[in-house]
Design a protein around this nucleic acid. Structure first.
Length: 447
DNA sequence: ATCGATGATTAAGG
DNA sequence: CCTTAATCATCGAT
């Protein structure tokens, strides 16, 4: 495009298209004195100003005369050749790049995410509706999943409509570049390409534009559109990734466990406070009871342990409560019941099912805390109170702690000593806690 | 809007 | 794999 003035110049000179103008230009280039040049420019400007005065017919006739000039084809070819050598050789270098690995990666990913592939199912809206309609307990999960799918299909739709615009199909400049195009789908790329092609063909009547050059231009356009496509794919990938992280990252859709599950977990925790490492079976059982996964149980215990250890005081009340509960269920049958043989939690929330006192150490601890503060004793009843009394007695004998501060301090010897935690407990996951040797805990306590 | 509680993830160590 | 410790991101109450 930028060569236009020069080419026009060439035409003017070579073909005498505009006698007056050519004359002056020749004069201008030949003359060396500034005086004459200035005058030439003035003349040229004058002519340019008056060029619109010429009738259209006259211009057309002149153009026609140009086109039909006998020297035109030869000159045209020569000029094309020269242009080929000078201008086009510069950018002939980067042709036919190999398939971009990044593009392939993007394609693969889009395919894997179901964005690029064929539409599946009868429209995801229906699927989403169906999933949402199932309702019930699992509704939360499936609803979010369907929401995810709906969003994904939205992305997918945008992607496809956009992609179609930029897709390039069969623009075949057959033979000499004046060939016919076939199967032209109407989209931005093809429209633009044909437009440019037509424009260049039109101009090739007045400018030296070889068919080869048109072809090259087409390929340049295609490259540009390819890069647009690439960008589209890239941003689609990004969108999918964001969507994924938004919906599939469990952290982001965290739901608190329901109260019952928390109760069960807490009961297990506080009744095994000396060694709160449930075995694999225990975890499975807890998971089943709480309707959560085993790894969620593991997470819960991991979090609980660390948070309990970090701030025991904060958990006192909770500890009291669960310990008291355990104690109640244990004492209410007024028997030192041995464990149920399964690694089950002491008692399932609220029900008077399995009364078991996991170990006396824990009870001891719980009562210590009762001794300390804030326990109102409402539902517990007299037998607990008596135990409190007894233990208070014991405590006062052994340690001499008598105020609420003592309670929190008394927790630590349980197993968490100042040096760091339950670490001297038996190998965590290999111990099925309910079948523990009672003595060990006591010895722990006495430390 | 803010803030503590909480489930999940990550890094480091075994 | 397991753990701990730190951290993230959300929930839920205020």
């Amino acid at each position: 495009m930028d060569e236009q003035p020069r080419l026009m110049h060439s035409h003017g000179v070579g073909m005498a298209g505009h006698p007056g103008l050519a004359q002056h230009m020749q004069d201008g280039t030949a003359g060396t004195d500034g005086e004459g040049r200035k005058q030439d420019i003035g003349d040229i400007l004058q002519q340019i100003m008056t060029i619109t005065d010429q009738s259209l017919d006259e211009a057309q006739a002149r153009k026609h005369a140009l086109n039909c000039h006998r020297m035109k084809p030869a000159l045209f070819n020569v000029l094309c050749e020269i242009k080929e050598k000078t201008v086009l050789s510069i950018r002939g270098a980067q042709e036919e790049e190999p398939p971009d690995p990044q593009l392939m990666r993007l394609d693969n990913m889009l395919l894997a995410e179901g964005v690029a592939g064929p539409e599946k199912g009868g429209g995801s809206a229906a699927a989403a509706a169906a999933a949402a309609a199932t309702g019930g307990i699992g509704a939360d999960n499936s609803a979010e999943h369907s929401d995810y799918r709906a969003k994904l299909s939205q992305i997918r739709q945008i992607y496809h409509t956009e992609l179609e615009k930029y897709e390039q199909l069969d623009i075949v400049p057959t033979g000499g570049g004046y060939g016919q195009r076939q199967n032209l789908k109407k989209n931005a790329c093809n429209e633009f390409t044909t437009h440019v092609m037509n424009l260049l063909r039109e101009q090739s009547r007045t400018r030296p534009i070889s068919p080869k050059e048109i072809e090259r231009m087409v390929s340049i356009i295609h490259r540009k559109f390819s890069s647009i496509q690439m960008q589209l794919k890239q941003s689609t990938c990004e969108a999918v990734m964001i969507l994924r992280s938004r919906f599939l990252d469990a952290r982001r859709k965290r739901r608190n466990f329901n109260k019952q599950a928390t109760e069960i977990l807490n009961e297990y925790f506080y009744s095994h406070l000396s060694n709160p490492y449930p075995s694999e079976e225990a975890k499975e059982e807890l998971a089943k009871k709480c309707s959560i996964t085993v790894s969620q149980v593991s997470n819960w215990f991991g979090n609980k342990r660390i948070r309990y250890k970090k701030n025991i005081g904060k958990f006192q009340e909770e500890a009291n409560m669960y310990a008291a509960r355990t104690a109640v269920s244990a004492t209410s049958v007024s028997a030192h019941g041995s464990q149920a043989n399964s690694p089950s939690t002491p008692n399932s929330a609220g029900s008077a099912g399995s009364f078991n006192m996991s170990n006396s150490g824990d009870l001891f601890m719980s009562v210590q805390s009762l001794n300390g503060d804030s326990y109102q004793g409402g539902q517990v009843g007299a037998n607990i109170q008596s135990q409190v009394d007894t233990l208070r007695h014991v405590i006062s004998q052994t340690g001499g702690y008598s105020d609420s501060l003592a309670a929190s301090q008394m927790y630590s010897p349980q197993g968490i000593n100042t040096n760091g935690g339950w670490q001297d407990a038996p190998t965590p996951s290999s111990v099925t806690s309910p079948t523990e040797g009672p003595g060990s805990v006591h010895s722990d306590t006495s430390n």
